[in-house]
Design a protein around this nucleic acid. Structure first.
Lengths: 300, 300
DNA sequence: TAGTTTATTGTCTTAAAGACAATAGTGTGG
DNA sequence: CCACACTATTGTCTTTAAGACAATAAACTA
């Protein structure tokens, strides 16, 4: 018996909840599926599906088996694809998902060069701050401020993601330069909104974490707008250092230094990671893009 | 084409390095394997094996494909087995691997009851302090002082594994009761040897870690012998609290208290974990044993 | 209750995998 | 250096299993 085909049939039936629909997806008569799935159940000695002539639903064990088999089939598909595309040149659709701010500022400037290097790769770029599940769906490469979700995913550390407090010279002249983190609460604050809510201003004093957030003047998920407000002297902003290098160099914004540093997370090791699935690295388009991006974006 | 069969053939050829040997393993003529593997290569559009009439070896991509496919086949096998044994009662071989000391003292006393409960389970117990790879081979359940190696493995925290310094009253009378961790260096020490070497005595003073190990009197990987020596007043021993409850209760040994606690590892969260593969939990014998052991061994 | 949809089963056809013998290539040993 | 033994492949036939199509039984809906 062709077990793999039986598994594919079973999974399709489980997904669609119908032998007829599943059969249509494979362009074979429903009878074929019925036979193969029945044979599979027979060989396993368990009923995977509760059938009535009207509806099909998974049994408890069927549910479990389906989850595992679906993953197995997916991984096999991926391995096959990796071999098939091996020794081909980089080409095809490449889906990259990246944090909005980082994407705009750091990634977009590189893409022209990349497209010139690999004209046969069609880039599909998603700028979004919500986490994409690299695991299952169509994202090939993700750039995120976090670690690898599991062992199948490779994480390459690109750069630091340290948030630093900044303000314009005008603002500091008007309001005074805060000399300690605790003073920040008396200042005006420009807050970045993450998917988990506005990012706090935290500082650790004697093992205790304090929220030293200033008085909110603006909250946004658009870093550039907040930076604009900061330059106009509207308040103090916490932002990643990489997003501020231009402003700091030109003197439009100044970094604030305290004895006890201010952070946006209790987690010290914030960094930007490039993530991809290990097995996908053999696929030329993925390898080309990973190598290119790491070469251009990694520092340190 | 029966892809799965082709994959099994391919893997066997890759493992044995010979079509003939692989064919023998399946009890089919070598020609079948030759055909199926060739068909597989054709469908993938890549050569997986470098053949000469005398030897067969994997190509670079073949190597990669083999690794992935071998894992996929293994997992499929496991899933099938899980379904097959579902709804059967707990029976068969059950391989448990456990740290020597913990196994002797905590596990062995439970096994009579377990065997009475599940007479059809044949227990195969390994007492060893070297890590067994739960991942691939024949260990169903492991009890270890460490975390889950990967996401497929479930880790249940059983109990604390805090090491405490103890000595006999006689020893303390003779040598004096140390009042600070640093004084330990002047005392005689009984050291437990882990697979990574004798476990140190550490203590953190003002953010700095110090080795406060005493003068070695004995080193062994056999906790009971060290405990015996300690009772005889031969020195101070660091051992897990669970292994000492009897001695502490009977007054044969006394716990030493310091302002700065002494540890055997810089890692604070040492604990005993029961480990098993998530997917195996549906297998009755595994579920029965996990449930039984967790119920009896978990505290807190 | 009648009608329609859906899964299953029987029978035939078609495709693919196994068996066996024969061939070609490659090391080893005399 | 040559013959022998071993191994992978290929050709041909047989056998097995999957697909196609029609018919049947069950179940939800109107």
């Amino acid at each position: 018996m062709d077990q793999l085909r039986a598994l594919r049939y079973f999974c399709k039936v489980a997904e669609t909840g119908s032998f007829t629909k599943a059969a249509a997806a494979f362009s074979v008569p429903p009878s074929s599926l019925s036979r193969r799935v029945a044979a599979l159940e027979d060989s396993l000695g368990a009923t995977l599906l509760k059938r009535s002539t009207r509806a099909v639903q998974l049994t408890e064990i069927g549910q479990l088996y389906f989850q595992q088999v679906a993953d197995i089939l997916y991984r096999l598909e991926q391995s096959d694809e990796a071999v098939r595309s091996y020794q081909a040149k980089p080409m095809g659709q490449l889906h990259i998902s990246v944090m909005t701010g980082f994407g705009e500022r750091m990634l977009l400037p590189l893409l022209d060069e990349f497209k010139a290097l690999y004209p046969e790769i069609t880039l599909d770029l998603s700028l979004s701050d919500t986490v994409s599940n690299l695991g299952r769906d169509e994202v090939d490469i993700a750039i995120r401020g976090g670690y690898a979700p599991n062992e199948r995913v490779q994480a390459v550390r690109l750069m630091d993601n340290e948030f630093i407090p900044v303000a314009s010279p005008a603002y500091l002249q008007e309001m005074g330069v805060p000399t300690s983190a605790l003073e920040l609460t008396r200042h005006r604050g420009l807050f970045y909104r993450t998917p988990m809510g506005p990012s706090p201003w935290l500082c650790e004093i004697g093992g205790q974490w304090h929220d030293v957030a200033g008085i909110p003047t603006a909250v946004s998920n658009h870093g550039k707008w907040l930076a604009q407000l900061a330059i106009e002297g509207r308040g103090i902003m916490m932002a990643p250092r990489w997003s501020l290098v231009d402003y700091l160099a030109s003197g439009k914004l100044r970094e604030l230094h305290f004895d006890t540093p201010v952070r946006v997370s209790q987690n010290a090791e914030m960094a930007i990671y490039l993530l991809y699935q290990k097995q996908q690295y053999t696929v030329p388009k993925v390898k080309a893009a990973v190598d290119f991006l790491v070469a251009r974006l990694r520092e340190g």
